[in-house]
């Protein structure tokens, strides 16, 4: 079983190195996608031991994730893990993500922040926002209501799932899109509890309410079907 982690990164030179270093203890290879960063993100990723692909112009997190996923398929991955570059995902969650796939119990595994393990320092407003997002997802986007975490960025896909799930949202809306594509397909999916750490820096880059509306808009424009 060849496991490859995909980490989309945009201006993450300060945090990316440590993330890659930690992630590499759990996977065979890390593909870092530098989404046309203005800093030394590519360099930092290379030094930490990642395979680097670089977008010439910024196309957004979803686009970078897709590029990385295709690179991982090219590199012969059997299991592909999606991890955020900012260090909010504890790399020790990776075995829990890939285990159900390795055992043949699931094709896609989502890390959920709401299945038992309390996130560290998650603001109250953010919790309210997640509940609203969940409601919206089930009502308008068509994501199964069994999904407990509507905006989870940590997930693992089998090779077949990565080939089938053709997400086209370039920006933050890819999260909802992947959830919809997977839960509406015949792929077997599963959620496992993961631990997420919120720091001031991760929050700064995270999703505000404004961003939520932007996601909504993208889902409408690019279609939810």
């Amino acid at each position: 079983m060849r496991t490859i982690a995909v980490i989309p990164a945009y201006n993450e030179e300060s945090r990316l190195g440590k993330v890659i270093f930690d992630v590499l203890t759990y996977v065979d290879r890390v593909v870092a996608v530098d989404d046309a960063s203005g800093d030394q993100t590519s360099q930092a990723a290379k030094e930490a031991g990642a395979t680097v692909v670089r977008h010439r112009i910024n196309r957004g997190q979803g686009a970078a994730l897709k590029t990385g996923t295709m690179a991982a398929l090219d590199l012969g991955a059997d299991i592909i893990v999606h991890i955020d570059a900012d260090g909010q995902h504890d790399p020790s969650m990776i075995p829990a993500l890939i285990d159900p796939i390795a055992k043949g119990e699931a094709d896609v595994v989502f890390g959920s922040r709401f299945l038992g393990i309390q996130p560290t320092d998650m603001p109250e407003m953010r919790k309210v926002y997640f509940h609203l997002a969940k409601l919206f997802n089930t009502m308008f986007v068509g994501i199964s209501k069994d999904i407990t975490d509507p905006q989870s960025g940590a997930r693992a896909l089998s090779r077949r799932a990565a080939e089938v799930v053709d997400f086209r949202q370039d920006r933050a809306a890819h999260c909802s899109e992947i959830l919809r594509l997977v839960t509406q397909s015949d792929l077997r999916w599963k959620e496992v509890p993961v631990h997420v750490r919120y720091s001031r820096e991760t929050l700064k880059k995270g999703q505000s309410f404004l961003e939520a509306f932007r996601i909504l808009w993208h889902l409408i424009i690019r279609g939810t079907k």
Partner: peptide
């Protein structure tokens, strides 16, 4: 939106062309 999609496709193609050492240590996979 159509243009954005096309742009992403081109940028992606370009990025993947630079992918180093394809299938280096595990050719048995294929």
């Amino acid at each position: 939106d159509r243009l954005e999609k096309l742009l992403t496709d081109i940028v992606r193609k370009d990025a993947l062309r630079d992918l180093p050492e394809k299938d280096d240590e595990q050719p048995n996979n294929q």
